[in-house]
Simulated assay, not measured.
Amino acid sequence: MLLRAALTSFRRGETLAAQPVSASVDVSLKHLAAYNSVCGFGLRDALPLTYPHVLGFPLQMKLMSGPGFPFPLPGLVHVANRITQARPLTADEPLEITVSARDLRPHPQGTQVDVVTSISGVWEGVSTYLRRGGGASSTGEQLERPVASAVWRVPADIGRRYGAASGDRNPIHLHPLSAKVFGFKRAIAHGMWTKARCLAALEGRLPEAVTVDVRFKKPLLVPGRVEFSASENGGGWEFAVWGKGPHVLGSTS
């Protein structure tokens, strides 16, 4: 998979022509338990809200490394993720997964596209990816640091542990040396691990039908110490993870 991703480095496409890919998937209880452990979820019949994302990850990679996807995978930045579920999925039901790409559009720092994972008509995840280039650098938002609800210490091996559970073994997450090749001082935590960790902290407090939006901001270098905040707001939740600056900003509705 990593080799296929590397071979996309020569792409210079400007159009989106990737065709949807689909598969039927059964949940492995062993795999689910490993995911729950690394993200902090309890063991329940219902799948954690973020777990279907990792079930669809092989199809996401197949689509993004296949013909018709306009961007090379190296250097692509995951800037946002939105998950909507009509009801919780359960570990004993067969799942039909379809992954597609849509809405190629300009961004102040380049071009972005949505990769959409749909499961059994009741769960949808939209990951927005940015290809930098040709745009002005970001001036940065003026954000107020929220009051911390908890302090988390993120271990140095979280990228390797989450990579084993999710299948996402991007070198920037695995080891300081491989991360430095891509310009990072140390390895960085997966954005989707950070989102999952936030939702694990809110477990039992979200409705069964829910939408969770996050924006990924500054990379979370590991090992690290971060503050998690969460507050109710108009029937939903606002949550965030901060270090020296914001790493994740999220909301539920």
Rank of each mutant, 00 (worst) to 15 (best):
G135K: 12
F10H: 07
P70Y: 14
N36D: 04
A156F: 07
V99F: 12
G224Y: 09
A179H: 08
L177M: 14
V214D: 00
F182K: 06
T211Q: 05
N36M: 02
V27F: 03
R87Y: 03
A46W: 02
V181D: 01
G110C: 05
M192A: 00
L249W: 01
S149D: 08
G121F: 14
F69T: 00
G191Q: 03
L95K: 06
R11A: 08
Q142G: 06
N81M: 04
S9R: 11
N81D: 11
A33T: 12
D103A: 15
F69K: 01
G135I: 07
R82I: 06
V99I: 15
F69L: 06
R205E: 05
L174E: 02
G13C: 03
A240E: 00
D103E: 15
V99K: 04
A189K: 04
V226P: 00
G243H: 09
L104C: 09
Y129F: 15
S137V: 12
R105T: 10
A34H: 15
H190V: 10
K244Q: 10
N170H: 14
H173E: 11
L59C: 04
V181A: 13
A80R: 13
S100R: 13
L104N: 05
I172V: 14
V116C: 06
G191V: 11
A46M: 00
A187R: 06
K244P: 10
T139G: 14
V116N: 03
T98Q: 15
P207Y: 12
F184D: 06
A179R: 06
L202A: 04
T15F: 12
E96S: 15
E124M: 15
L206D: 00
P176R: 08
L2G: 09
A189Y: 08
T84A: 12
V79A: 09
R44K: 07
G40F: 09
D213W: 10
K244S: 13
P108K: 13
A200Y: 00
A201G: 10
L16T: 07
Y35H: 09
E144G: 07
W152G: 13
A34Q: 13
G42P: 00
E124S: 15
L177E: 07
N81H: 15
A86D: 08
I188R: 00
G250T: 07
P176W: 07
